[in-house]
Design a protein around this nucleic acid. Structure first.
Lengths: 202, 202
DNA sequence: CGTCTATTTGAATGTACTCAAAAGCGGTGG
DNA sequence: CCACCGCTTTTGAGTACATTCAAATAGACG
């Protein structure tokens, strides 16, 4: 996925699958976007600074996390291929970010800044529609996760994550999964041990 | 707030504050909406049936909750005046709902069904923009709550809720607040007892 | 190969849960 | 107006699950 053209084709397919995008409109959107390669461990938004970009992941895997006053990290989001990721509050307001967005693998992303985002939404209806639809889907997914967090045990949340997003569990370090689930790495390790002991119990 | 006209004026002001809505476009949106009064305890969407409407709360207070296999209720959302509420998944797909939306007080709502919603979004750009903006704000708020749920203690989450939405805490029964926080009513009662004993500790 | 980090395992602690009972509150009807 | 009823909140005691701190093992990377 080194080829920038391929990255844009991926995005175009993603938009076209959700809207009736007119072919000619697409360059108008993408002329405002830039490709960037992020090496593993490098960040898109640094803590305390505004998060300037909304990123489309063409290849790789990122996480968004916050660091609390005890220095503990808390993962609020992962993003694999064809997901968008940003620190939404910071992106929209220009204020310092609360989240750090970091590449967990070498990743290729397409970036759009807030000015371009607003401009494209205002001038290309299919694009605004596309983002509305993505935000609706995100609403559903995030509420599902929220419900899991307030209603399920740690083990049940882990099993749900495996069922919903097996590729995340496969690709991401366990301590990040634990953080995403809201438990300690030790607790996740014990849960995995228990599950391995009872194969077939779901 | 008996007057339907007042309800629509409230909505118009809400839209106009977020978009450059053209005055003449508004009737095109609202001709597709219906007003309904919900008595305390009555529901907008029944469990198992599709949630047909997206609702704008003109007056009153609602909650969306799911019931797990043990019969326990879990509140995923409250909606006060000028909030929108629906079972988004069910509303968009037409499939049976996972959430029940219930009036916690006598409430006046404006309803739009999925067909009208899609039609208005497709034909009135300001309306699609309005919902994109609301969904962005919801994205920020829901991620904030998610972060709180995975990173804060029950007491800290309660204090954050008081700080963020004092009117919810004032108006809603404690057991619903507890459910929303992901704890038992007994635990919330003890937390409140502790807080009352240490006035000034935040 | 050696070092650094991640994961596993162990033991003690703590927070929230369950079950149970008492107290408080609100509404209804005598 | 007061007594009663149902539901919510509080309080108590014992339990379960996840946490913390610590140490051992396993893996990854230069």
């Amino acid at each position: 996925m080194h080829d920038v053209r391929v990255m844009f084709d991926t995005l175009k397919a993603h938009v076209a699958a959700r809207t009736d995008l007119v072919e000619e409109e697409f360059p108008r959107c993408t002329s405002l976007m830039a490709a960037r390669r992020l090496r593993k461990g490098h960040t898109l938004s640094h803590a305390g600074e505004p998060c300037r970009y909304l990123a489309f992941v063409a290849a790789g895997c990122l996480r968004a996390y916050s660091v609390d006053e005890k220095g503990e990290e808390h993962v609020v989001q992962f993003a694999l291929e064809q997901w968008w990721i940003t620190d939404m509050y910071s992106f929209l307001t220009g204020k310092p970010g609360e989240y750090i967005i970091e590449a967990l693998e070498e990743s290729d992303v397409l970036l759009i800044d807030a000015v371009a985002y607003e401009q494209v939404c205002a001038t290309v209806p299919a694009f605004e529609r596309y983002f509305r639809i993505l935000l609706q889907n995100n609403y559903i997914a995030t509420h599902r996760r929220l419900l899991a967090t307030i209603s399920l045990s740690a083990e049940e949340r882990y099993l749900q994550l495996i069922a919903d997003y097996p590729s995340i569990v496969q690709r991401v370090a366990q301590r990040h999964i634990a953080s995403y689930l809201g438990i300690t790495p030790e607790a996740l390790s014990r849960i995995r041990g228990r599950i391995a002991k009872h194969p077939g119990d779901r």
